[in-house]
Write a protein that binds this DNA or RNA. Structure first.
Lengths: 150, 150
DNA sequence: TCCTTATTGCGAATGAGTCGCAATAGCATT
DNA sequence: AATGCTATTGCGACTCATTCGCAATAAGGA
């Protein structure tokens, strides 16, 4: 992480949370450093590396706290645990393959027609940010692999 | 459940599973009786009422077994546990509200344009049967309720 | 430096299943 | 109807990912 980025985050933390602890700061930095998505377990592991002795429950509590103030968010990628990401990670939706687990990002506009239809027909505001679109990726479809997940 | 429906199910069980036990039969009947969706816990409760003494693990094992042979299926409705349904429950997708938890069924055709786009652009076969479409229902959007779920 | 109270670490508890294993019971055969 | 094979059951212990209660600690304002 660059020094300037780190200072930005620190400023945001000061503004948005009552107290800035090393644990909180490192947890946020860990998530912001990694471009992609991280599970809570991944975050516990990496934070422990950077700050030996942190308690897993502290990590879990801070994931909630940081999400409450809007600095991070999480997305459910099919089966399995949620993935966390920085709030400013760029706008996109996810496709997740139920067979190989591979995920890819797609442009938000891809879903806008469906979202419009659902809004018009049912008044329903679909949210593809919080749950990925589940299915079978090109590679698994081509090779005819079967889904053995629950 | 009608007598004829019950006999149909029994015939299917005989054909598709090595042994027909009372537990297995009652579990399948319970799911087929209820038009809608049931959580595993709901099924344990109802099966226990019909057949006192069944073990929860027997119910869980049979849910897997019945799903493996294609008699039932389950769908993930946002947060929370999966819902089971008879395999012949009629083809439709689900909208689930993340705020009030309300669900509604929609015609499969509603999503076909998006599915076509995803297939053409990414070779991805989206499956809206296994994961519901998550968002905010008309009523919650109207009254501006906020999402407090994880 | 002191004080208030938010935050931490610890370990126990939770929810929703899953697993190992001995006992039971379908059902094909005699 | 009795027998034998083995699928299935019930039980209880276990897992996984997370949450909770609580006493000790430590931010950060006065």
């Amino acid at each position: 992480m660059t020094k300037v980025r780190s200072e930005e985050l620190l400023a945001q933390l000061k503004e948005l949370t009552p107290r800035v602890t090393p644990q909180r700061r490192v947890i946020l930095e860990t998530i912001c450093d990694r471009g992609g998505h991280l599970s809570a377990e991944d975050i516990v592991a990496e934070v422990t590396r950077r700050l030996p002795g942190v308690s897993p429950s502290t990590v879990y509590r801070n994931l909630q706290a940081l999400e409450n103030v809007g600095l991070i968010s999480h997305v459910h990628m099919g089966h399995g645990v949620a993935q966390y990401q920085a709030a400013d990670h760029g706008r996109h939706h996810h496709l997740v393959c139920g067979i190989c687990g591979h995920t890819q990002q797609i442009d938000e506009r891809t879903t806008s027609n469906l979202q419009r239809s659902l809004l018009e027909a049912h008044g329903f505001e679909a949210d593809f940010d919080h749950f990925a679109i589940y299915g079978t990726c090109a590679e698994c479809a081509r090779t005819g692999r079967a889904n053995s997940e629950g």
